[in-house]
Design a protein around this nucleic acid. Sequence first.
DNA 1: GGATTTTGGAGAGATACACTATCCATGTGG
DNA 2: CCACATGGATAGTGTATCTCTCCAAAATCC
Lengths: 219, 219
Amino acid sequence: MRIGELSRRAGVPVPTIKYYVREGLIPGGERIGPNQARYDEAHIHRLKLVRAMVEVGKLSVATTREVLSAIDSPGSSLHEVLGIAQAAVTPQVTASDRAGWTLAEQVVTELVARRGWVVKESNPARQALAQLVVTFRDLGQDDLLGVLEDYAAVAERLAAAELAAIGHREGVDSKVEGAVLGTVLGDALIGAMRRLAQADASHRAFEGAAGRAPDPAAR
Amino acid sequence: MRIGELSRRAGVPVPTIKYYVREGLIPGGERIGPNQARYDEAHIHRLKLVRAMVEVGKLSVATTREVLSAIDSPGSSLHEVLGIAQAAVTPQVTASDRAGWTLAEQVVTELVARRGWVVKESNPARQALAQLVVTFRDLGQDDLLGVLEDYAAVAERLAAAELAAIGHREGVDSKVEGAVLGTVLGDALIGAMRRLAQADASHRAFEGAAGRAPDPAAR
DNA sequence: GGATTTTGGAGAGATACACTATCCATGTGG
DNA sequence: CCACATGGATAGTGTATCTCTCCAAAATCC
């Protein structure tokens, strides 16, 4: 097919496809003439993958390219690819020497140790978590840090469930893509789910007939 | 204090503070002259709050303003404020009539019903979740949808833990701020935690020499 | 077979966002 | 007294993600 059909089938404007090709997110079509190229089903899938990461997963084009190149890299283990994908999607923290930073890193280290997790020192998620600890402290929300244990337990369960799901698959490529998508789209997934559960919990705690009745004057 | 000290104490450049005031994220100082204004501790806290949402929570300035105005609005119940904050942080889905959209919405509705959740039809997290379902389907990752139940169960637990932590507080304002911060920073928190847990799970599944003993901390 | 549309490729332009920089009349602090 | 800070407004910067424009060659329509 040519670019017009590719555009229609994938639901992506032609100029955007050209842009993605320029940016190296998707390969160009097979050249069959000075101004003709042919695209196939693989291009459609790749394009959908890019759109999923960019639109749904909210990754930047640059980050998407990194993740895709990890997926493409031959001879990498699933573990390695996941590491690269994780590093790519984890926002880099500007390591400011704000007060309490060392303490926060210690909190993270202890949490990881308590869980028995094996996580590289270089894993950027450590800094991301430490930054959150610092932020909560800084805002006087220390009591919210008590939920860290819950979050850790829950994260463990999610990771296990996800890996189990892709473990059933055949073929390394399929596993890799599944794992990376789980990483990228999983953030949005748990986010949406958390909001639904929170809306219900909030309703139950503050609006339901069982709890304290809301202040009628507050409306 | 004047703006210079505010800048130092909060770790935010002066021009940025001015920008935030212009954008209505923080109130201007108390005017005490044609070109003099005074700021106090409340301004510091507000500024830190803004930075937490913008830098750590990755909210846009516009979204941050929405959330803050919800916090500020007097006479709103905690439930209402949470609803506004949720709507603000949930990315709006461009309701395309892509194939399978109706089916995806039905999946969401059934999930919510199965959980016994009380969630408004208008809650944007429904669409966000439906979009994720569509995306997974579109990419041929249907088997990953099996983990939806796990995510739902886990989200329920997190929401309960968070509300419980906040429930111990005194004062509505404090509860509101805690709940909103939980919503906004919770996304980053579960994200970081997920990556740590996933790194460990991946290590265990693909790198470990042998199966390890079950984690003593897991429950 | 001629008119119209599409194509590939590349550079320039558009738009949005979150700051920064500059200016200047007015204050403050040493 | 005087360098420096302040508040307020306007303009400019850098980044990111497209989107537009151009052109000759190719394809499609009638």
